[in-house]
Amino acid sequence: MADLQINRRLIMTPGPTLVDPRVSQAMSNQIWGQFDPDFTDIMDQTMALIRKSFSTNNRFSFPIDGSSRAGLEAVIGSIVEPGDDVLIPIIGRFGDLAVELAQRAGGNVHTIETDWGQVLDQDQIIAEIKRLKPKVVAMVHGETSTGRLQPLDRIGKAVRQIGGFLVVDCVASYMGTPVLVDDWQIDAAVGGAQKCLSVPAGITPITFNDRFAEAINQRKRVERGVRSAEDADQEAFITSNYLDLTQLQDYWSPAD
């Protein structure tokens, strides 16, 4: 079989983007086992860099295996339980994706929308938060389909006041504009690799705070010996195994 030949392209799409040569060089290095001491050192360095990139002190800041959609599904699927009220402000295509993910998790989804190319007034969003008192507010910061940046610096405070959780899709804005997770009181944020960061799709940086971690850890996991999800409490069971953040956070916990 002939060697794979890839023709050069100048890519000017929202994503994927051209990969930085330093990334290609790093990816050509030898593979290590996940328990190699040098590999765990790189994991710790990676978590520290992800914290810095999100302007957060969250201990749970790590990459998800998979594209940004996997990161979004991991976060939404871990916090949304069947019957939970979820408010999703929509300013473009990826608000619709959040709706689908929340519905697949069993959430009772409410939306407010504006025309594509526009953003929503934060006062309108906050008024809906106060009216609905949802468990989760999920919204897009940088909307790929329209190129618009949704202001949300006041949303986290409003969500926190009603005891809810703010989940933000920062896939298109991550590393292109500041995402101030702690200052904006964002409970969980999902970044993107294949856009501003200029890395191949397949790894997705996420971060979530301790109150978010406490909420998802209250959901029951299937213990060893339980044969199926039908034997577990369906109201609490996180249906995904691979994207269950209660398991991934253990794997990515900082070394003592």
Rank of each mutant, 00 (worst) to 15 (best):
residue 102 A to W: 03
residue 102 A to I: 10
residue 185 Q to H: 05
residue 131 R to P: 05
residue 184 W to N: 00
residue 128 E to R: 15
residue 146 T to K: 04
residue 157 K to V: 13
residue 138 A to E: 12
residue 188 A to Q: 02
residue 153 D to M: 00
residue 133 K to A: 13
residue 114 T to P: 12
residue 64 I to T: 02
residue 67 S to E: 10
residue 156 G to L: 01
residue 120 L to T: 13
residue 112 I to R: 13
residue 146 T to R: 06
residue 163 G to V: 09
residue 63 P to W: 03
residue 191 G to R: 04
residue 137 V to N: 15
residue 62 F to C: 05
residue 164 G to I: 04
residue 164 G to S: 07
residue 126 I to A: 03
residue 157 K to N: 14
residue 101 L to K: 01
residue 164 G to M: 06
residue 86 V to P: 08
residue 180 L to N: 08
residue 159 V to P: 12
residue 175 M to T: 13
residue 137 V to M: 15
residue 178 P to A: 01
residue 187 D to C: 13
residue 70 A to L: 05
residue 168 V to A: 04
residue 108 N to V: 01
residue 80 V to R: 06
residue 103 Q to N: 14
residue 141 H to K: 09
residue 113 E to W: 03
residue 73 E to M: 09
residue 77 G to I: 03
residue 157 K to T: 15
residue 164 G to P: 10
residue 165 F to S: 01
residue 173 S to T: 11
residue 72 L to I: 03
residue 132 L to H: 09
residue 140 V to R: 01
residue 94 F to P: 09
residue 73 E to V: 01
residue 77 G to E: 02
residue 169 D to P: 03
residue 175 M to R: 08
residue 176 G to Q: 06
residue 83 G to S: 07
residue 72 L to G: 10
residue 61 S to W: 14
residue 148 R to H: 06
residue 134 P to D: 12
residue 108 N to Y: 03
residue 117 G to P: 09
residue 153 D to L: 00
residue 189 A to L: 05
residue 65 D to N: 06
residue 164 G to W: 08
residue 126 I to C: 09
residue 85 D to L: 14
residue 117 G to V: 06
residue 140 V to N: 02
residue 177 T to H: 07
residue 182 D to M: 08
residue 123 D to W: 06
residue 111 T to K: 07
residue 122 Q to S: 13
residue 113 E to Q: 15
residue 181 V to A: 02
residue 149 L to C: 08
residue 103 Q to P: 00
residue 61 S to H: 11
